[in-house]
Design a protein around this nucleic acid. Structure first.
Lengths: 111, 111
DNA sequence: GCAACCCTCACACACCTGTGGTAAGGTTTG
DNA sequence: CAAACCTTACCACAGGTGTGTGAGGGTTGC
């Protein structure tokens, strides 16, 4: 019978995480394994792929888990996304050369 | 002469942050004030607005400063944005009913 | 010239995150 | 039935973040 369902130790080896971290990731709703009746965690291919790509994300970009959570919020909460975007856009502009030039005199007046 | 430039104490009162936090925010490049020759920080209207809206963001949405930094990364680094989006999208799907239904038998087989 | 500001630097602290360990106990399998 | 798994529930700890406070010293304005 096809047994591509791994218990936590096997999934740890296969994914590159520690078993401890697999439990941590479940606790924080990043990767939710199936369960046997006895309560053993079972990881299938989708979960393993998810674990591997999560590892990748952290390795390649240095992304924190909390940051992923925030990214999820950003894609779900339109008003939050808009507010953040507005703030960041203002920041990009505020530091643009035009503003910078315009405000030189403030520095001069300020002395 | 128009003096709408506030030094750090005034800006603190005006913005609702403490002077300490204004320095902290500068150190972390969130709001950069002008400077007098003697090194005093000077906050103009743009900075005050930025400070106020930053306060708002935190109050209304509970946004951490680190999360704003990440949001900035997201809007600047296309490959990061794409990778994160892909991961989140996969997550949305993986927990969708279709997948859920499809995988019921795995749970049954697993017992 | 002195009071009231400002500067930097540093200590201190509470909380959160990511990670390891370990203890007490249940499950599976040869 | 014993070995090798698994479970939950804790303790520990380093590093980061947000914040206050204070010391030692410079600047400004009445």
């Amino acid at each position: 019978m096809a047994r591509e369902l791994l218990t936590v130790g096997g999934a740890a080896v296969e994914s590159g995480w520690s078993a401890r971290m697999l439990r941590y990731l479940e606790e924080h709703a990043f990767v939710m394994p199936l369960r046997t009746d006895a309560g053993y965690r079972l990881y299938g291919l989708p979960e393993l792929n998810r674990l591997r790509s999560l590892r990748d994300l952290r390795a390649r970009f240095g992304v924190e888990l909390a940051e992923l959570v925030f990214a999820r919020r950003l894609r779900r909460e339109a008003d939050l996304r808009q507010a953040v975007d507005a703030w960041l856009a203002a920041g990009d502009d505020a530091r643009s050369w035009i503003e910078w030039e315009q405000r030189k005199h403030e520095r001069l007046l300020a002395v």
